[in-house]
Design a binder for these strands. Structure first.
Lengths: 229, 229
DNA sequence: CGAGCGATTGAAAAGACTCAACCACCGTGG
DNA sequence: CCACGGTGGTTGAGTCTTTTCAATCGCTCG
């Protein structure tokens, strides 16, 4: 599944980079990036950073999936975002001069590059296009989160699950969705038991196909319908 | 309550500006701003912009309160943020090159200045400090919203209301909180009736004092305790 | 003075959560 | 090779929170 040549990944040929925010760099910038990033293979469930810790750099996902989450009072995780290859994780805290207010952890074995804070900020200072890309990205996430909040406040768990499955489908495609029940519940914002019961319903209604951890959407149209606007 | 001299507000003497993101401008920049902004008195419940409309500029609140909200499927509002004097509203959509995904409306009579998109973007391009301030602000809001989502997913309505009252207290201080029951319910993310019942509880527990629309927190410590982390 | 809106209350229903038990699978160590 | 232990998944039952619906109240505005 994972390209074992991860140690030889170079920024210049990295497809994840070219599809990402860093896609618009010029040759010089790429070689500079190349010299300043380190690349590592992360095992499943390995932490990238913890809530409350001090940010030292950003993470570029070359291959794999990362959950970004926050813990509530009782320690229960709320997954805010699931990042996939091409995404950069942890750059928000870079600007806020504060500690991370969320944590990030791999959901599967992942190949992830690391760029130190100063190098990243330098790149942004000297590259207006990149900067604009970042601002655009921040704004988009802000918009996403406004929708997330509204969904959480107003939709039923059934609706939210339908919505989540559509999102997850896009994140995992062309692979099947592959998340523990608990993670999925923490993404939807419900109890694991409730999630399991609803998955069963959806399965019986022919909307999804489930093979233990792995599931695929078989009737996206209907799911979108259930999810609502 | 509202300074009727609003027509004579100038950026150079605007206290709301000096405490805001635009506080660090130099004299030239301020006079430039002065020439490019227009200042208007908004009545209560007047719209600044609608969800789905195209952003043409940003709004600086000189005096007053503005709710930023999104409508769910059934048209019910979810209030995402309540902005007060000194805050700039609507700048996120400026970078995303998309339509507004939220709407904004005054909660009371307000004095609000308007800066056209191009002027605002120019200022940002030529002023690194302002730019950094904006990025910092975007990041902070992103952090806030992660917490908001988590609260919404994991806290009971009672806990969320306690939390909201603490926030509102800070926003309205030194005035009493002044919101319709419906707006408050839409901020907390609950039904109006539920909100009313819980307010009654809090009142009976001696945590707040209520005079129809206006209410004050009398035991913040206990409320914070109820709200949880 | 009447219309109408916001606030309030009560009662019933629904949605979701908790708790407890049970199952299924998998890797480990004897 | 098989028993064991552990983790993650599943199910059922009961409870509680929250919503919904309907009705009432109180006040303000024309």
């Amino acid at each position: 599944m994972l390209d074992k040549s991860h140690k030889h990944v170079t920024c210049s040929t990295c497809l994840s980079r070219s599809n990402s925010l860093l896609g618009g760099l010029c040759t010089d910038e790429v070689s500079n990036l190349e010299n300043h990033r380190s690349c590592n293979l992360f095992k499943k469930n390995q932490s990238l950073f913890l809530e409350g810790s001090f940010p030292r750099g950003v993470f570029c996902i070359n291959q794999g999936k990362v959950k970004v989450f926050k813990r509530g009072d009782e320690g229960k995780e709320q997954i805010i975002h699931i990042a996939k290859e091409g995404e950069i994780v942890g750059f928000r805290a870079m600007f806020s001069e504060e500690v991370y207010n969320v944590a990030a952890e791999t959901l599967e074995e992942s190949n992830i590059c690391y760029i130190a804070k100063d190098d990243f900020l330098n790149m942004i200072d000297t590259n207006a296009a990149l900067r604009n890309g970042i601002m655009k990205e921040l704004s988009k996430e802000l918009a996403d989160r406004a929708s997330f909040i509204t969904n959480m406040a107003q939709k039923s768990v059934r609706e939210r699950l339908a919505f989540a499955l559509i999102l997850l489908e896009k994140i995992y495609e062309p692979e099947p969705i592959n998340l523990s029940r608990e993670d999925m519940a923490n993404f939807v914002g419900t109890a694991t038991e409730t999630l399991i019961r609803l998955l069963k319903d959806f399965k019986e209604e022919g909307l999804i196909e489930v093979h233990t951890r792995k599931m695929t959407v078989t009737n996206a149209k209907k799911l979108i319908d259930i999810a609502g606007k």
